[in-house]
Write a protein that binds this DNA or RNA. Structure first.
Length: 429
RNA sequence: GCCGCCGUAGCUUAGCUGGUGGAGCGCUCGGCUGUUAACCGAGUGGUCGUCGGUUCGAAUCCGACCGGCGGCGCCA
């Protein structure tokens, strides 16, 4: 039994082979049937003719519809008329699982394909994306393993918000109210006092009615928290991490990137270090380009687009005004009106993929910021506790893994980066 | 939450200055021994999103509702 990809080799030519898969294309021309067979590794043409396979097998090949699963044995031939230059001359054709009329045909709208996602996953495009996605997760874990991190797990059911603004999904919890986590950051901070360097890969949930090409209500979140380091060192870790993943995808998924028509040179040209820009300088730069930007307003989609179009590699935007960032970010001792934080913006207009920074580690400073933001300290009692018993300077970040896949694969909308995307409307399939 | 847009056959759509709904793909049948999302012939398929209004007459005009899409805000 051979995988389809392995058949594209001189060593099998004129030899007996056997392979199996699903019918990707089917056409007949008189007494010969052409089948394009697909498996997880690729596609190959199979020709079925009556005098080669006999009446019975020929009839099952004739009745087999798109996406039928089949086992074929025969002779591998070189033939320039076949796509890819090789084809299988069938001697035996076994229909394993019949396929009814496959609902996905030539014309397909975005929405229809989302409704049919459980079947559309088989498409060459989705298969390529899923392979890239698999590599991204693999090299993400690989990076942390190499750098000596511990992987930890935080709860998905939580009792309150990490930050005030975001909307939480409420779920009934034995007569009480619970919420689905929107970030594991606070829990990660609890682990650093024993494990020092920790990370987690888990879903986060946001009940925002966002309708943009980069928002989902459920997304895969990689978060890390590191003891004893500051904002600058955190950024260096992150850029190494992104480079490691990029290298992994470029090494393992060239074929998939090509199939997706990704401009690979744009990824290959990225080198360390990434760009760094002060928030204040962005505002100045924005004014020069004619954007309506005031110091103290958060960067909107237009601004991010303008910035990320300008640069060929990812850009850290650092030192945001503290008012527009959550209370736990540490104000810069040199200039307490800004915080020691960073957002990482992916190039080519993709925008924010990471948010991170240094956390306040002083008890009084944290209480002060909670008070300024008019939050209730009781809601953060165990988080505040961490500043009472041997607090240390520390930093962390959150990476939107789906957004990373979205950018690397060069996709139009984040929903293509995720097998079963969830947004305010979509819960099926 | 705000601003735009769209619902016609299984899918993709034309018809929208009102006068009995057309096409391509799919599917069924037939033809072809080299097709490349093949081609040729025949057939199949529609309470035009729902309800109401205007009119002699509504897919078409008006209103409400339902469903969806794109963008902004929010963020990963």
């Amino acid at each position: 039994m051979q995988k389809i990809k392995d058949l594209f080799s001189e060593k099998f030519v004129d030899n007996e082979i056997e392979t199996r898969g699903w019918i990707y294309r089917w056409r007949e021309s008189g007494k010969i049937i052409f089948i394009i067979l697909r498996d997880s590794t690729g596609i190959i043409q199979v020709t079925v003719s009556k005098d080669m396979v006999g009446e019975e097998d020929f009839n099952s090949a004739k009745s087999a519809g798109i996406e039928s699963s089949v086992i074929v044995s025969g002779i591998l031939k070189r033939d320039e008329r076949a796509p890819g230059g090789f084809e299988v001359l069938a001697k035996k054709f076994v229909l394993v699982g019949k396929s009814l009329n496959f609902p996905i045909t030539k014309d397909k709208s975005d929405e229809f394909l989302l409704d049919m996602r459980h079947l559309w996953l088989r498409s060459r495009e989705m298969t390529a994306i899923l392979k890239i996605r698999s590599t991204v997760f693999e090299f993400l874990h690989d990076f942390f393993k190499r750098e000596g991190y511990y992987e930890v797990q935080a709860p998905m059911f939580v009792s309150s918000a990490v930050e005030g603004g975001s909307t939480l999904f409420e779920v009934p919890y034995f007569g009480r109210k619970a919420y689905l986590t929107q970030s594991s950051q606070f829990y990660l901070e609890t682990f650093i006092f024993s494990l020092e360097n920790v990370y987690t890969v888990a879903p986060s949930f946001r009940a925002e009615k966002s309708r943009t090409r980069r928002h989902l209500t459920e997304f895969w979140h990689c978060e890390a928290e590191v003891a004893w380091i500051g904002n600058d060192e955190m950024m260096k870790i992150e850029e190494r991490m992104i480079m490691h993943i990029l290298d992994g995808v470029l090494k393992n998924n060239k074929e998939e990137l090509i199939l997706l028509k990704r401009d690979i040179s744009k990824l290959e040209d990225i080198t360390l270090p990434f760009n760094r820009m002060e928030y204040a300088d962005i505002i100045k730069l924005g004014k020069d380009v004619g954007l309506d930007l005031d110091y103290g307003s958060d960067l909107g989609a237009d601004e991010e687009y303008a910035i990320t179009q300008k640069f060929e590699k990812p850009t850290f935007v650092i030192h945001f005004p503290k008012e527009i960032k959550p209370f736990y970010h540490r104000p810069d001792p040199q200039n307490p009106s800004v915080v020691l934080n960073h957002d990482l913006l992916a190039p080519e207009g993709y925008g924010e993929i990471i948010g991170g920074g240094e956390r306040i580690f002083d008890l009084d400073e944290l209480l002060q910021r909670i008070k300024e933001e008019r939050l209730n300290p009781e809601d953060y009692s165990w988080y505040i506790d961490l500043r009472k018993y041997g607090s240390v300077p520390h930093s962390g970040f959150g990476l939107g893994i789906d957004r990373l896949v979205w950018w690397i694969a060069g996709l139009e909308h984040i929903k293509y980066a995720v097998p079963y995307p969830r947004n305010v409307r979509r819960l099926v399939p």
